[in-house]
Write a protein that binds this DNA or RNA. Structure first.
Lengths: 243, 243
DNA sequence: CGACCCCTTGATTAGCCTCAACAACCGTGG
DNA sequence: CCACGGTTGTTGAGGCTAATCAAGGGGTCG
């Protein structure tokens, strides 16, 4: 416990002792939520951000026509609720896909961080930009590719992100998403997601067993998709010096 | 021209003399490009950012299947090329929709800005987050709404953004986009964009005359769409103190 | 055991794409 | 000044993809 945020940022730069300490003082006690819990509704006033310590979450918008668009899945290490920095309220609903533990910290304390540790402020800025770019990738996937490619693309994204914590050689993944959730991520109906997954299985690109997905032919899977692994290559060379 | 950037950031906070000066030193001489010029290709190494001084641009991705997804339209005052902060290269192709003038400034100088003017660093961070949220709005539009609603939504977005510089009472707008570009923004074909526009005209929601679009029934237009005007309400209350 | 959720599959429908043809417009060069 | 090619807008016909509607099965939790 403690240091969720430092651990995350430490992936990108070597933190000084000063920085690590400053990050430590941001965080409050971790909080746990049950599967299905709503952490925050769209338009809730929000002065807190979170680091995900354990579990899966997703953020989504509910539309007037009753449908839902999932914007992003969040795993351990991800920063939640950045939109409160820009708007003071949540732009999306955030809810727990599995049981989760979150490390909250206050938005006001980030101001101090920007003042006293400009390198960390700039790094957070870079992370939010990287998140925007992955959203743009998904936009291209949904706007301009077939249903099959969208599903394959989501699988590629999950694989790439899960390997960050699970090791580069992982081939089998536990994916606690319903087909409806996959549909809401990819702009498809659950029924059609089912058919597309079946197609991928029939073509031996993947195998499925309950919520476990095994990658059988990664080369072909990637070939069907416009997948770019963004977070693999964050450039931190321009950041100011550490304090 | 100095001060493009200061002018933009000045919309959100009152800049101190110190801050204005610091922003002024960032900028190099403005550069002009002709309609259709590519400012930057996807994956170009890029150490520069730009502020748009005049004209329209768009950023887009070209997919393996030959199609294009336009991520965002950029107008006067917008910041271009933020993705180079995260990756050191451009995540998207940026090109000029009309003749444009851009004010470039160097990425390295932003590091100094983060150090010496933490408030401005935090503000830039907030702006990049706001941009992410508008991208998420478009994702929901494309993933979960009909062709007609997507086109209407794009019109609403343009109207809202053009009024920022043109005045709140504007009802007629010059929109220098081809129907193909509208399609590439909304995930539709040019042919279908044409039919949807025709529908909006037939229903007297809008009128068209060449590239001019007049809003006839804004209430109904908005009612068909899940439109939220994000930039109207940027929250800067948490920012650190100015220097 | 029943209720509910999720997955699966089939049949049908609707929305958007593709292909095609033509008109209008623009900038260019003869 | 006009002829020309190229781009953009417009409209129709037909086809394909994904949605909708529907029904049944398995699993889990109370």
């Amino acid at each position: 416990m403690g240091g969720c945020f430092a651990e995350r940022l430490g992936h990108y730069v070597s933190l000084t002792a000063n920085e690590t300490e400053a990050l430590g003082t941001l965080e409050e006690q971790g909080r746990s939520y049950r599967r299905g819990a709503v952490i925050r509704h769209e338009n809730d006033n929000a002065r807190e951000l979170f680091i995900v310590q354990k579990g899966w979450l997703h953020s989504y918008a509910l539309l007037g026509n009753g449908s839902r668009q999932i914007m992003r899945l969040h795993f351990a290490g991800d920063i939640l609720g950045l939109s409160s920095l820009a708007f003071g309220k949540s732009a999306e609903t955030i809810s727990a896909v599995t049981d989760v533990t979150l490390c909250p910290f206050d938005r006001e304390k980030l101001a101090t961080l920007f003042e006293e540790h400009p390198r960390l402020g700039a790094l957070i800025c870079a992370l939010s930009i990287a998140e925007r770019v992955t959203l743009a990738d998904r936009l291209a996937s949904i706007g301009r590719t077939s249903a099959r490619a969208r599903v394959a693309s989501l699988i590629c994204e999950l694989v790439s992100r899960l390997r960050l914590s699970g090791g580069k050689d992982m081939r089998e993944f536990y994916i606690p998403l319903t087909q409806e959730e996959i549909g809401d991520s990819t702009g498809l109906t659950a029924v059609h997601v089912n058919r597309m997954m079946r197609g991928l299985v029939d073509d031996r690109l993947i195998a499925r067993n309950g919520n476990f997905v095994t990658i059988l032919n990664e080369a072909r899977l990637i070939a069907e998709v416009n997948f770019i692994d963004r977070f693999a290559q964050l450039d931190t060379s321009w950041l100011p010096r550490a304090r």
